[in-house]
Each structure stands twice: as structure tokens, then as C-alpha cells.
Design a protein around this nucleic acid. Structure first.
Lengths: 408, 408
DNA sequence: CTTTATTTGTTGTGTAGCAGAACAAAAAGA
DNA sequence: TCTTTTTGTTCTGCTACACAACAAATAAAG
């Protein structure tokens, strides 16, 4: 008998039964997931990673090939004794559109199955686009991108990243403060314009997914993602490799968590929250900048040696450290990813952040935990949003419909 | 085509393949899970709830019966047209021991598979029992209870609820402040004494599980559980029906989250945390009580009308409201369960708590969310700890070994 | 009281999908 | 050139589920 059996990973799961079809779907999905994460992989690696039999993998890959989702090719490099294994690659012709409406611009991209951004267009807008305008602009940009795609490409759908709260039952934007959208059925609007299936979620949540699959969170299963932008602070939580969504999809509002008695208000009117204390605009102001991206900000920061600026930034780092400590206590993550403005703060004085944070969380929870800067840059939301639209395909390869580029 | 396809529940799961055995295990587990939660159930209900075929359920139930895990009996009450369905019940002879070492006493119980506490003994101790003493006492009590069990009973194992942080990789108590245990391999110690498999976890986490299965959290999949005791404030998070454990098992330290600039220290030396502001002992003191259980406290509270006491308790309610608001923003739960001392606070002035909390969390996240008092009383930890020990059996009914009461 | 409709348990058959074995193919090394 | 190693292919077998046919047990209708 084993000394101390490990606590079972899943204490209780679903009480739904499963049958042969579920197995097949799960195995097809497992293979396709591996391929979409790594780009390409020999068949022998698939057998090893899935634990399935060679003959089964052969069968699965054949089915995926028939579905047009993967291609097989002779191995170019051989790495050892024995017959070389066939290389399996995700089909480049399967793509998804990514849409990101924001205050100043609407960005639309085409992203391939393997996470490569094929094309991207950005249309700047006048202040605060109305939802209908945004949907029409997005539709126009999608049509434009669609024209340039080869005829044999197929589309999984559209993924939308929203700077706000999205109800995932029906894809309605519950509240997006900066866009001034309230209860906007954006998914439905865009679906009706484009005829494509539309998937929608909060931007920070999608960012955390992209980082998990292709960025600094690769290989981790417990991730806290904190993203600072001009609009405020958003968050995403990955638990056991899966995003935490909550009852309606609003989970992960890590910026709106109260950590102080300060009367400062954040973008949602809550006082003493992380977002109310860590403010990009305050720092820009102190540096005499009006509009600057994160690179320009970092440069200005490196140049400025004034005590005033240092004081501001240190106060913000201290606030961030408290929040990070809180999330370590709550989630016991493997890694905390700081993105955007928060990444800049971390880079400015990581020692201060780390030492303060160690002071404000339980020591046990800090075991082997790391704080990191996020890795993905400008294409973050494109990859994340497209990943959302591609998820149904990856989860159920055989039963997901794809739309040809040229509609009949 | 559907208008707006719902966001897939699981964005990405494991990349391990599955085979026929996995199906069988999953289905046996699904049936047994349903039975252990509801006590008993007709076969027809099992077919409906699992979605499996009648003949398959017949097969599964037969196997579980052969394993001695369930019994079938003629339905007593008939409720409608048609042939009455056979009633399936979890076997009463399958039990687990529950152990809960605390400052003042060690409690051990026998809990049946269906969540019934068959017997319970409590041995008071002198201050702060050393781990070895606690293990020996627990072993003695287990032997005592074991003697009284009928010979045909079988034991799944021992579940231990620890008031502290438990590393779930090896069952070591990382830190239990009130017991003054540091890096104690309690699971291994108890396993060596008893010869039974030992499972161990944090007490509040186990409390949340018990409430999910048998208490106020029944039927919910997104639960925040906050428990106030003499020792401090613990928490448990249930996400998608599964407890949130984090990288090492320390997740859910909801009492040690900083919500204020106050210099008050909590039991772990962190300042401004929920636990530092919501203190049972402070209230007891103000009421002139030395040692009182929650009932006595509530009674004293009802009798006392002094402004001083009201002020103390209102400050604590306000602090609790902030924390509750934070957790709503972070987790977007369906229900928040307040247990122990926090339940008393809630009962004292629920309106104040609710209105304050609504003020400190995002409105969207409050949609259809409820705050409730926990339902389980004194047997909470017994049921939770036993559930932990029974989990492997429920998850893999066919391949889990049970130990006979009389060892050969 | 008999007949009918309804629901459930039982039994036998069909089948999808995975494992495993045997064999062939393609590489490296002796 | 021969051996060893690794992988792909093909065939067989088995398991576990769905489905259909039938039997059993009830309530309702006549």
C-alpha cells in the first residue's frame, strides 16, 4: 500500500455518462490540441504524449487529415536510429478572425490555426464608437481581409475581445465602461452582419489564454494574469489549465479588488481598489507625457530621475505588491504574469515589488512561485480572440462546421 | 446556424488520450457520485441523470453491487404509471474515518458512504498537542471506533482536516499556526500507525466540500465558502463543482487577504487582512465572555444592546462586506456561504452586510448571486474529511481497495 | 374484472473504437 | 551487407455501449 496516496486531482466531476463517441471526440481533440500548441510534431511524439497506441494515433491522424485539419509530410530531419516518424502539422488554411473594439480604434486580424497572425488591420475611430458602428466597421474590415484570403481557406468563426464584462450565456456585453456600452448584444449583431459564428469574451481573459498557449505561461496550469492598460487593470485566472469564468463569465476582475482604505475611485467607481491606486495616467502626467505607448513610457521613465516620479511609482509598486500577495494567498498559483503597464512597473524596480510581495503573503504559498513579465506583445489579443473562435473546433474536430472563404 | 454559440465550458483540457477503461471508470463513478450525494435513487433516475441507456445502467449497477458498494431493493412507493423502478442505495457498510486535530481536542468519527455520521468521539487535550501525540491519540480513537463496527463493514481510509496549510503532493502539514506544527508529515505518521490510507487537507476546504454535497451549497457549481472560528478565518472555493487547490494545495486562504491599511495583524502576521479585522475574540471580550460557542455568542449578542458592542460588530460586518465584494469581483460565484462566526455576524445584521457589499462590487457580478448561512453544524468537518477519504472510491469504484474492519 | 397504455427491467445483437500482435519499411551502426 | 532499432500498416480481438425486442409490473380506462 502506498504511504500517502495523493489527493485526487478532481474531487468530483460531472455526473453525466460518457460513451464511445465521447472517447473519440476527446482523443481527436487531444491530438489537435497538441498540434495547435506546438505547431507541428512527429506522430511518434503524439503516441507518447497521449499515451495511445500507435495504431490508434494512425487512425486519429487519418481522420483529422480527411477533415482537412492537419497535413502529414515526410520528416526532414532524422534524429536517431529507426524509421523516421511522419511529421504532422496543423492545416494553415484553417483560420479565425479576431476583433478588438477599443476607445481609439477597432482592430481586426486573421489568425491561423497554429497561432500565426496572417494579417491585421486597424481602423482608428472617433471617440467612443457606438456598438452598431463598431459592428459595421468590424464587418467591413473582415470582408476586406476575407477577400485577400486564398479560396481554399476555411473559417472557424470570429472571436471578439471586449474591454469589459461579457455574459457568456448569450454573448452580451454587460458593461464596457470605456466604450460606454451597456447590455449590448454584440455577438449577435456581428453574427447577423457576417453570417459567421461569433464568440466573445473579456480582453484580459483572452490575453491570459494567449499567454498560456503561446507566451510566458506556457507549460503552467495555475496562472494569474494581470494586465494594465490605459483603460485600467484587468485580470485573468487559469486554474488547472482552464480559465476561471465564474457563474456568468465575469470572473477575474482582479483590478477591482479593494486593498486599501483610500477614497480614490477606479473606473467603476469602487474605492481603494488596485485600479484606483495603480494608474498609468497619473504617471504619464508626472512625466509630462500626454499620449504614450508602453515603450515610450519606459524610455521616459529611464530618463527621469526626479524624486517626485520615483515616489509615485514606488507607491504604485507597493500597491501592486499587496494585490499580488493577495492573489498568491487566494490562488496559490505557479506563476504571476504582469502585462502592459504592470510589466513596466515590474521592470522599473522588480526587487521592490518582490520583497514587498513576499511580505504580504503566506510563506507556504510562495514556494516555487514566480513573478514574470508577459511575453506576447501587440498581437496578444488577436491570438487570444482567435483562439476563442477556434476552441470549438479543437474541442470537437469532427463535428464543427467550417465556413469556406468564398460563400456560395 | 445558431445565432451566438455559447462559449465552450472547457476551453482546453488534458491532452491525454482515453480508452474504454476510462469510459467505464467514468460511468461507474458518475453513478456512484449520484448515489452518494442523494442517498438513494431509483434506477430510472440514474438513466435519466446520466443520459446512459437502461441496459448500460443495469450493467453498471450490477457491477457496483458485485463490488459491494450499492444494494438494490424493490421500490416501496410507486409514483405513477408503469413498472416501478428498482431502488439503488449506497452500501451502509462502506465507511471512512474522519480526524480533526485542533487546539483543545482531537475529534474522530466514522462516516458512512452516504454521509451519515455513525459515531464520533472527542478527546480533549492539553494545550497544543504535538504531532506525534495527536497521531497516537487519533490512532487510539480509531481503534476504539473500529472495534464497535460490525465485521462486515469495510473501510475506505482516513480523512484528516487540518487547521492550516497542507501540501497535497505528499500530505505534509506545511504550517498550522494554532497547533504550532511546521512541516509535519502527519499523513505518513497516521498511515504508519493505522495501516490505512490517509488523506489530508485544510479544514475550511473540506468544509466547503461538505456544504457543497450535503449543505447550503447543494446544486451550486460556483461557491465561495468563508468560515470564521476561534482560530481565525478560513476559506474554500468551489469552481465548476471542483475545489480550487492551486499549485500545491494552499489555495483558498481567503482570510489572509488584505483589504485595509490598518496595522492590525492576523494570526499569520499579515496586516489589514480580513482575519485581522473580523475577530471573534474581540467581540467575546466586549461581551464579557471568556469561552463560548457560536450559540452562546449569538444569545449574548441578542441580549446586549450596548452601543459599544454594536460599534464593534458593525465595523466587523463592514470589513466582511468588503471582502465579500472582493470575492464576488474575483470569482463571480453563484453563492457565498458564511459559516461559523461569520454566520453569526450575518444573522446579526444581514441588511447592513448586503447593502455594504453591493456597494463594493461590480453590479454585473452581483446578478442572481446570493449570500447564505452555511447549513451544516457540528458534523461539518467529519463529513468533509470522510468525503476526502471516500473520493478515490467514488472516482474509481472498481480499482479502489477497501480494508475489512477486522484485519487478518 | 378485464383491457389498454405506460414505464421499466432483461436479454440478445450490433458496432465503434482502442489495444496488441505480426509484419513491413526506413533509418543508423557494425 | 547485415543487424538493430524505431515506426507505420494491417489484421484480429475485445470491451462497453446503444438499440431493439420482449417480459414484467403498475395505473387508468372500459
Amino acid at each position: 500500500m502506498s504511504t500517502t496516496p495523493p489527493i485526487p486531482a478532481r474531487h468530483a466531476m460531472t455526473t453525466k455518462g460518457s460513451n464511445r463517441e465521447d472517447i473519440r471526440r476527446h482523443n481527436l481533440s487531444a491530438v489537435l490540441t497538441l498540434l495547435s500548441r506546438t505547431g507541428q510534431m512527429p506522430r511518434s511524439a503524439l503516441t507518447e504524449l497521449t499515451g495511445l497506441n500507435r495504431s490508434t494515433i494512425s487512425d486519429l491522424v487519418t481522420e483529422l487529415e480527411d477533415l482537412g485539419l492537419v497535413t502529414e509530410s515526410e520528416a526532414v530531419t532524422t534524429q536517431g536510429v529507426g524509421r523516421p516518424s511522419l511529421m504532422v502539422s496543423p492545416a494553415e488554411e484553417v483560420v479565425a478572425f479576431a476583433v478588438n473594439p477599443d476607445i481609439d480604434a477597432i482592430t481586426v486580424g486573421v489568425v491561423s490555426f497554429s497561432g500565426r497572425v496572417i494579417a491585421k488591420v486597424r481602423q482608428t475611430t472617433t471617440v467612443q464608437p457606438a456598438a452598431t458602428t463598431a459592428a459595421e466597421t468590424a464587418n467591413k474590415l473582415i470582408e476586406q481581409l476575407r477577400k485577400d484570403l486564398p479560396a481554399n481557406y476555411r473559417i472557424a468563426g470570429i472571436g471578439v475581445a471586449i474591454p469589459g464584462q461579457v455574459r457568456h450565456a448569450d454573448g452580451v456585453v454587460r458593461l464596457a465602461p470605456h466604450l460606454n456600452w451597456v447590455e449590448v448584444p454584440f455577438a449577435r449583431m456581428l453574427q447577423q452582419l457576417t453570417g459567421l459564428p461569433v464568440y466573445i469574451d473579456n480582453d484580459a481573459s483572452l490575453g491570459s489564454l494567449a499567454e498560456r498557449d503561446f507566451g510566458a505561461g506556457k507549460g503552467f496550469r495555475e496562472i494569474i494574469y494581470l494586465f494594465g492598460s490605459a483603460g485600467g487593470i484587468g485580470g485573468g485566472v487559469i486554474h488547472d489549465g482552464i480559465p476561471l469564468r465564474g457563474a456568468a463569465g465575469y470572473a477575474g476582475e482582479l483590478g477591482h479588488v479593494r486593498i486599501s482604505d483610500s477614497p480614490n475611485e477606479d473606473g467603476s467607481g469602487l474605492t481603494g481598489t488596485l485600479e484606483s491606486l495603480v494608474r498609468r495616467d497619473v504617471l504619464l502626467n508626472a512625466l509630462g507625457l500626454i499620449n504614450a505607448d508602453d515603450e515610450q513610457l519606459a524610455a521616459a521613465l529611464a530618463a527621469d530621475k526626479s524624486a517626485k516620479v520615483r515616489k509615485i511609482i514606488e507607491a504604485q509598486i507597493d500597491a501592486l505588491a499587496i494585490a499580488v500577495g493577495n492573489y498568491v494567498n487566494i490562488f496559490n498559483p505557479e506563476v504571476i504574469l504582469l502585462a502592459g503597464y504592470l510589466s513596466t512597473l515590474f521592470a522599473y524596480d522588480s526587487d521592490r515589488l518582490l520583497s514587498r510581495f513576499r511580505w504580504s503573503s503566506l510563506t507556504a504559498s510562495q514556494d516555487r512561485m514566480v513573478v514574470r513579465q508577459a511575453a506576447l506583445g501587440a498581437n496578444l489579443l488577436m491570438v487570444g480572440a482567435a483562439g476563442l473562435a477556434l476552441a470549438p473546433l479543437v474541442n470537437a474536430p469532427a463535428s464543427t462546421q467550417l465556413t469556406p472563404v468564398r460563400s456560395k
